[in-house]
Design a binder for these strands. Structure first.
Lengths: 199, 199
DNA sequence: CAGGTTACAAATTTTGACATCTGTTACCAG
DNA sequence: CTGGTAACAGATGTCAAAATTTGTAACCTG
């Protein structure tokens, strides 16, 4: 008895996300996912080699959505690099705040998954650092953010704003002053980046 | 049958620390602590109103030791404020790295306790912010770190260095490049702090 | 009466039998 | 031969009973 719908990987990922939202990461089973799709759990194993791989895939998809939304801001050459850097950092924070607000259960689930599969998380950091590097490189090109190593500079900025994007700080993002704090850090960093480098 | 040693609060805290080290925070019971001290567990309750209070006290003692070590650096007026700020931030990181290296079990236990009793943790942050504010104020006084609100500036610096002192980043402190990364962030922040403020 | 004891109720944790889940295999349909 | 099924063994999770721990009380003792 073949499934009515062809059951592609994407349908499995969507179903997994739904189960994750409803049951949380600890109690989300692949049997649940299969039941939602109306197939046996072995069918899911035809598409993903293990539960671990399925969870990684769903986490990656989640992170990739964030990455793509941010890429638009990073690439917006209409905005001067310094301001774009600030806007981008605010967008990183705002995106995560929005996800927490809209669906705290799912966010908590993904936070646990991202921490568990650190490879996926470090890949995502690499993606974000790439975007930040592009912004800094634009600033280096037009002279507004002088640096001879855009990648190193981007890494420093990323490290200095960890409080506003690292999941370990998620609880603090509820704090009403958090956006102001990010803005203050941005201002200080941009002041440092504008400053003429001593030879 | 009175205990051989008078059993003061400090002895209980030391015993609790030992139990914490051996059993971990989840399995450390006040019965264990009492057994270590050769008394009944009710005796412990003569000195601490609850297990919660005992755990808070032991956590506070641990954090206060760090605070006192750092206070020496913060108050060392022989070192110029800008350099002192850098040294102090390095000391915060180095102190935590040392504790992880020397006794990972105990560090993990304290990390969990500090997260649980958030009041103790926020008090500690307040202490550290006070030290940082003192350094910045010294810099404001001698003109090396121009600012009209030392406390606000200290808070910005603290936020920008969260990666190097917030317990949520403890795993990253094993990374060999971490000290260099802190140094780079310090350099950028100090560059921003030196820069003339626009009117 | 400060600081210890034993004894005890309520809350929590551990235990162990039982159920479910994971991952694999052998098999079937188009 | 891709994509499904059912049946299975071993790992993992669940749940109620039993044991332990928390916190209190009533009671000693120098």
């Amino acid at each position: 008895m073949p499934a009515r719908t062809p059951l592609d990987a994407n349908a499995i990922l969507a179903a997994t996300e739904e189960i994750l939202r409803r049951h949380g990461p600890d109690k989300a089973t692949v049997v649940d996912v299969a039941r939602t799709l109306g197939v046996s759990h072995a069918a899911v194993y035809k598409h993903f080699p293990s539960k671990q791989a399925l969870r990684e895939a769903v986490t990656r998809r989640w992170l990739d959505r964030s990455r793509d939304a941010l890429a638009v801001i990073a690439a917006d050459s209409a905005v001067p690099p310094a301001q774009r850097l600030r806007t981008w950092l605010h967008a990183v924070l705002a995106g995560k705040q929005a996800k927490i607000r809209e669906d705290p259960e799912l966010f908590a689930a993904y936070a646990i998954l991202a921490a568990a599969h650190s490879g996926v998380a470090t890949d995502h950091v690499t993606d974000l650092l790439g975007q930040l590097t592009a912004i800094v490189a634009d600033g280096a090109a037009d002279g507004s953010l002088p640096t001879d190593d855009a990648q190193a500079t981007a890494r420093v900025v990323f490290n200095a704003t960890a409080k506003f994007h690292h999941l370990g700080h998620a609880a603090e993002w509820q704090n009403p002053g958090i956006v102001t704090e990010l803005d203050e850090v941005c201002t200080l960093l941009l002041q440092g980046l504008h400053a003429p480098t001593s030879p």
